[in-house]
Design a protein around this nucleic acid. Structure first.
Lengths: 164, 164
DNA sequence: TATTGTTATACTCTATAACTATA
DNA sequence: TATAGTTATAGAGTATAACAATA
C-alpha cells in the first residue's frame, strides 16, 4: 500500500513511492540531467545531442579501421541506428568508410583530419563534464559508483577480462 | 594521447578511450539498456516507453491533487513536456485534471479508477525489473550505488532533508 | 512582472521489418 | 543459412519560443 500525501505544492513534501528504492529510476533520471548538461557543453560541435556520436568518434580515432558492428555493441544500438549515426558523421566530414578487404561484407571506419581534430577537442571536455557534473558527490564515492557500473557494463556487453 | 589499437573485429580488444573513466558514459549507456528492458516488461501497458509516465502515475496515485509543475521537477522535464505527458495520460483515461481553487493558475491531478488499478499493477513490476536487471551486481553494491545516486539526485532536484 | 500551464514547430531518436551483398 | 550493413517507416521524445491566464 502506498503512503498517501495529498496535494504537495513543493517538491520537499513529495515521497517517491516505490521509486525511492528503485535503482533504475535514479539511472534514468540522472541520465536526463547529465545528457542535457553534456549537450550544453558540446553546443556547436557536431557530436552534440543523442548518445553514440561521442563514443563513435573517440573509438574510430583510437581504433582506426574499427567496424560499425563493434561500435554498435559498445553503445548498445542496433546496426540500423548505427548506420544512420555513421552516415551523419560522414556527411559532417568527420569519418570515412571503406569496405574491408579481408571481409568484404564488413566496413572499416577512419577519422578524417577534421574528425581527429574534433576528437582531440572533445576528449578533455567530456572528461571534465563528468567530473564537474558529479562534483557534488565525494570523489571516492564517484569512483565507487563508476567501478561498480563499469563492471556491470562490461558484463552486459560481453567484454571479458581487464583492459588495463 | 589516446592509445591506438587498429582494426579490432571483436569487442574484447576494444579500449574505451577516456570514456573508460567517465561516469557519465556509464550512466548514459546503462540508461539505454535498462530503459529498453523496462519497456519490454511494460509492453502493452499505457506507461511503456519514454521516461516520466511511470513516475507521474505513481506520484499522482500517492499524492492526489499534486501539481504538474512539481512532477516536472521530479522527472526533470520542462512544463511543456510535462503538459503533453499529462494530456496523453488523460486521453488514455488514467488521470483527471482540475483547476486548483486556492491557486487558479495551478492544476491538480487525480488518478481515475483505471489509473489506480494500473498503478497497483506496475508498482511491483517496476521494483522487480530494477532488481532483476541489476542482479549481476552484488546486492550490497546495488545498495551502495543507489544510496549515492539517491543523494545526488536529491541535491540536484532540491529535495532537502530525509523523506523517511 | 513572475508563475502555471498550453500550443506549435522543427529536430532527433527508437523499433521494426524488409532488403542487398557476402560468407 | 548466417552475417554485415542499408533503407524505409511509424511512433515517440526533446528543445524552443510564443502564448493566455492568474497572482
Amino acid at each position: 500500500m502506498p503512503k498517501v500525501t495529498p496535494k504537495p505544492t513543493t517538491i520537499e513534501h513529495v515521497d517517491l513511492d516505490v521509486l525511492e528504492n528503485t535503482l533504475s529510476f535514479y539511472i534514468r533520471t540522472m541520465n536526463i540531467a547529465v545528457s542535457r548538461d553534456l549537450d550544453e557543453r558540446l553546443e556547436g560541435y557536431d557530436v552534440a545531442r543523442g548518445t553514440g556520436k561521442i563514443t563513435t568518434l573517440l573509438l574510430v580515432d583510437s581504433h582506426p579501421g574499427i567496424r560499425p558492428s563493434v561500435i554498435a555493441q559498445i553503445i548498445m544500438k542496433d546496426r540500423s541506428a548505427m548506420g544512420r549515426l555513421i552516415d551523419q558523421m560522414i556527411e559532417h566530414g568527420l569519418l570515412t568508410r571503406q569496405t574491408s578487404e579481408r571481409e568484404r561484407r564488413a566496413h572499416e571506419l577512419f577519422v578524417t583530419p577534421k574528425g581527429a581534430e574534433l576528437a582531440a577537442t572533445i576528449r578533455p571536455i567530456v572528461t571534465e563534464q563528468s567530473k564537474d557534473f558529479f562534483s557534488f558527490i565525494a570523489e571516492e564515492e564517484q569512483a565507487q559508483v563508476m567501478d561498480i557500473l563499469r563492471r556491470a557494463y562490461r558484463k552486459m556487453v560481453g567484454m571479458t577480462g581487464e583492459q588495463h
